[in-house]
């Protein structure tokens, strides 16, 4: 079986400071991987290197493309990488306003990726947008409203709809439930789980919330100071952590 994403030796430095160092792993179709660690551990740097937002100093990010098989997305031409970014890849930002066009209606936000890949039938675009609003539990009557009139949870769900409308195969998520109320988080997690299962998505989720990865991720990487200190099955890493830092991280969680 070919990995959907094969990351080899990704290193990114900021001057003398290490962003992330020599990170390697394979992600297979349908897998959800969590990356946890405290602020400054390098997890967001790693995510941005993988998603093409940052250029790593060393390493490869090999993606199994639909047409040409495995390709290193770092050495790939920019048009190709951007094309991936609006077809097979999706990126869910922590802050919905970074991932949405706040001056454009909900329907326009969802339709943008469709139009970007050539959809030119207004009725079809609108129908698909409305369908996706339903899938992320936003009432169809809100299709013409701007996201500025939405609650934080709704904005985040809209961002997810906007990202998933073109049927991507790999979703990068940066703290997708950060800054949301606990009850809203639960709803979002449930939604994401359903979408991941029904669409056969693979996902990489960066978060510092261990409860989020326990519910969403099959696998887990624990990062500290730019290095991966432990990786494995999510429940194994959380229930039987091996590395000193992972043990500290797990034991630091407040029990509810």
């Amino acid at each position: 079986m070919t990995p959907l994403l094969s990351v080899q030796g990704i290193t990114k430095r900021y001057g003398n400071h290490i962003g992330c160092a020599d990170v390697s792993f394979d992600l297979y179709p349908g897998e959800v991987m969590g990356i946890v660690g405290e602020s400054g551990s390098g997890k967001s740097t790693l995510l941005n290197c993988m998603a093409g937002h940052l250029t790593p100093d060393a390493g490869q990010v090999v993606f199994d493309t639909r047409t040409d098989g495995p390709r290193d997305t770092i050495t790939m031409s920019e048009p190709e990488r951007r094309m991936l970014g609006r077809t097979d890849w999706a990126f869910v930002h922590q802050h919905a306003r970074d991932g949405l066009r706040m001056g454009v209606s909900a329907g326009g936000n969802v339709g943008e990726r469709l139009m970007a890949v050539g959809a030119r039938h207004y009725g079809d675009i609108r129908e698909q947008a409305t369908d996706w609003l339903g899938r992320v539990e936003i009432d169809a009557s809100r299709v013409d409203d701007r996201p500025t009139t939405f609650s934080g949870g709704m904005q985040q769900r809209l961002q997810i709809a906007r990202n998933l409308v073109t049927g991507p195969r790999l979703v990068f998520m940066d703290e997708p439930t950060g800054g949301l109320d606990v009850s809203v988080q639960a709803r979002l997690l449930d939604l994401l789980r359903g979408l991941v299962r029904d669409m056969g998505l693979s996902a990489i989720i960066v978060t510092h919330d261990l409860a989020v990865v326990r519910l969403l991720a099959d696998r887990l990487m624990v990062m500290k100071d730019g290095h991966v200190v432990e990786a494995g099955l999510t429940d194994q890493v959380l229930d039987d952590p091996q590395h000193a830092y992972s043990q500290l991280l797990v034991s630091s969680v407040l029990q509810v």
């Binding site: 066009r101 326009g108 339709g111 990726r113 469709l114 139009m115 970007a116 207004y122 675009i125 609108r126």
Partner: peptide, 9 residues
């Protein structure tokens, strides 16, 4: 694609 977003709106 963005140009059509404007017309869509």
């Amino acid at each position: 694609g963005l140009m059509h977003v404007k017309l869509y709106e």
